[in-house]
Design a binder for these strands. Sequence first.
RNA 1: GGUCCCAUCGUCUAGUGGCCUAGGGCACCACCCUCUCAAGGUGGAGACACGGGUUCGAACCCCGUUGGGACUACCA
Length: 472
Amino acid sequence: MTVRARFAPAPSGSLHVGNVRTGLFSWAFARHHGGAFVLRIEDTDASRVSEEAVRGVIESLRWLGIDWDEGPDVGGPHGPYRQSQRMEDYREATERLLSQADAYPCFCTEEELEERRKAALARGEPPGYDGRCRDRTPQDRAALEAQGLPAAIRFRMPEDEQSVHDLVKGDVRWAAGHLRDFVIVRSDGTPVFLLAVAVDDLLMGITHVIRGDDLLASAPRNAAVIRALGGAPPAYAHVPQVNGPDGKPLSKRHGSTSVEAFREQGYLPEALMNALALLGWSKDAETTFVSKEDLVEAFDIARVSSNPARFDTQKLEWLNTHYVQQLSDDDLAARCLHFLSAAGLSPDPSLLRQAMPLVKERMKTLADSVPLLRFLFSDDIAPDPKAAGVIAKAPEGYLAGVADALGRLEPWEAEAITGELDRLASDAGLNRTKGFQPIRSAVTGSTVSPPLPESLELLGRERTVLRLRAVA
RNA sequence: GGUCCCAUCGUCUAGUGGCCUAGGGCACCACCCUCUCAAGGUGGAGACACGGGUUCGAACCCCGUUGGGACUACCA
């Protein structure tokens, strides 16, 4: 059997790292087994989706390195891949279910349902649907319809015990009567997720449904609908949710946890993917660096942990510094360009490229390139308060002397500059730290910068001397 | 309330009855290196939620308790 897995996000908000992690696992599973991966957009609730969100989902996944064989943008034999465009399939399925008496019209209004729910709760009974419309006679239904009462369509849940063999949770059972009849078509005629997912998974030939475990309870319902439609349910794997640092499920109040946000902060896709891959899954006891290829090669759904994980930003940061260091200078320069431009700088390409070895191991994120390199690409480098303090404490005439000496120095390269700076410092009775810091402050405007002599070499003699004189 | 899921260092995890005086990564602490900041190196502290069983033997199996979470919608 050829594996067909899918990722089916609801584009109601941004794709947060918990969602993608689930998608990543589904993708890795499909790729590991040489199967197909399908992207489907779950937008049955039109009020909650925006076109922007759909585009955002696609872009985020692509950026991360996840690809799909069938989807809304690339098409495929089982399309369309947006639920909002599959209404005909849902209508046909509903008719079949209705004709088989696996579904029935329900005339209860939301208000009535709410009241009965409260009443049941008050009596200490479970609050689910009470089945009032379940066994109405055809005449009864006709009469109610004749009155023009709007009706939703409910699925008639089998009354025996239901069970799901889950690839990560194991066998999960629901005793008879615990799963109530549920609405599959709203009274306005639009299908509900519970129906759409089942129909789509069936029609798209999905063999493995890998999704968040908040959907575990809907698995037996999805499976029941698929069986009623004459199909065989796919295998299910419900992976745990990803929590925020406080241990609560990821949500808006955790701030920017979307893929897009991490991208904007300067994280590398390879680092995010690595971090996500290790959240709830591990290759073995030791492995901490996992590339896309490693993940595909080693992914095993049976090794997915069944308990929820917190997203660890510090580890992401550490992974990111690691991956930044792995990048070639050209690659890194190209990636930094966007951040420097966004900060209003217009870096000279060759200078930028030459600066990479200096900053590579000093960047946690690509965005860090801005404060580190501003002095090279802007002459507006008024010393910050700390730097101003250091300059003020420099011995009388020290910086002017440095300016003079550097103005005559030959050749203008790091090694010679280092020698000269050392000489100047010791002549002034200063050690390297004390001797270099005022210069660094004057030239970069900050007490923190890439190594000084190398920085000066790149800056050039003229700009260096000019800046020294400006503060001297 | 009911049903279901989950429970190893702060955190991510290894662990599927003896290999565990519980291993690794991040974070933390100390030291080394050092022109700032990093990076790097060395070392250190740090966990099986609790209580009962089962067994010659339990982090691993069973039961209970406690604590988290999900679902219980004409949301997905």
